[in-house]
């Protein structure tokens, strides 16, 4: 195998077929960028889940004076009921990791803080706010165990899971990710079709050379390798552009636009980008290499 000969064949092939080469590079770049973005969104969802699930808690609101749910028919929660609830929560360890009791005074203080600039503060007094247990679960997905044990019990107004609110948000992100993935897959299919056609044109435009190669006894590998490398090189360039797009997305969209405005949450780090980049390059080169190989088997038969 003479590397120099193969390399010069690849170079002249790429130049001869410049428009098709550019088309392959662009479609590979666009499809892989979308593919990379969808992977990045998924990494983002995972990051946010890790970040938030650590912080979410189940809130068990106790009946206050004037609560109107059926379980509060007996008026405000009695000290006996409250002690019983706390004891039952303790018995749920180790599923229940932390229990924190928030009294009406504390609830009122927090409320005042949260709505400091709002006139609503003046219209609410301490007794209207429920006292509550804030429970942190070892496994946030086991929320149902707590909910079924406590909701509807006398003295308990409501059991709230913060996770459910977050899940709606995560589902939205998941939907966006799915859309990006679908577009990426469609674009990858387009890329494969384009590579197939490019290889057909390349094989046809060089049928004279390949015909002579066959006659003088060049091996299949020798005949096909320049074509395969051409497909791999153009796909590789496209993949590198896609990695560039991903780096741009991370450094501009995430680090400079999203992160400063949403400081309360975590964003994916560079490690996610570093993990996705080789996937993009492998998918790009692999897919176009396989498409080229299968096409050439048909058009460059011995």
């Amino acid at each position: 195998m003479r590397a120099q000969f193969v390399a010069s064949e690849v170079g002249s092939g790429l130049r001869r077929n410049l428009t098709m080469t550019l088309a392959v590079i662009i479609t590979v770049a666009v499809s892989l960028t979308l593919f990379g973005v969808s992977l990045l969104v998924r990494a983002q969802v995972d990051t946010m889940k890790d970040f938030w699930y650590d912080k979410v808690e189940v809130s068990i609101f106790l009946c206050a004076k004037g609560s109107d749910t059926p379980s509060c028919a007996g008026g405000a929660v009695t000290p006996a009921q409250r002690d019983q609830i706390e004891a039952d929560l303790e018995s749920l360890r180790p599923l229940v990791q932390d229990i924190y009791y928030e009294s009406q005074e504390e609830a009122f203080a927090r409320f005042q803080e949260q709505f400091a600039n709002s006139p609503i503060v003046d219209s609410v007094n301490e007794s209207a706010l429920p006292e509550s247990f804030r429970v942190k679960l070892a496994d946030p997905t086991q929320y149902d165990v707590v909910a079924s044990a406590f909701s509807g019990r006398p003295g308990i107004e409501q059991v709230n899971d913060q996770r459910q609110v977050l899940d709606k948000f995560f589902r939205l992100l998941g939907g966006l990710q799915a859309i990006a993935l679908i577009i990426a897959v469609v674009m990858l299919v387009v890329t494969v079709l384009l590579v197939v056609n490019t290889m057909r044109v390349a094989a046809f435009s060089r049928r004279r050379e390949t015909g002579i190669m066959r006659l003088v006894g060049a091996s299949n590998l020798y005949i096909q390798l320049p074509f395969l490398l051409e497909a791999a090189v153009s796909a590789g360039i496209g993949a590198i552009l896609a990695v560039g797009g991903l780096i741009l997305a991370k450094s501009v969209v995430i680090d400079q636009i999203l992160a400063p405005s949403f400081q309360f949450t975590a964003f994916v780090g560079w490690d996610a980008v570093l993990g996705i980049a080789p996937i993009l390059i492998l998918v790009g080169i692999g897919l176009s290499g396989i498409a080229a190989f299968l096409t050439l088997r048909k058009y460059l038969r011995v």
Partner: peptide, 11 residues
């Protein structure tokens, strides 16, 4: 030379 190059003969 092409006939020799493509069957891997040395330069």
């Amino acid at each position: 030379a092409f006939a020799l190059e493509v069957i891997g003969k040395p330069k």
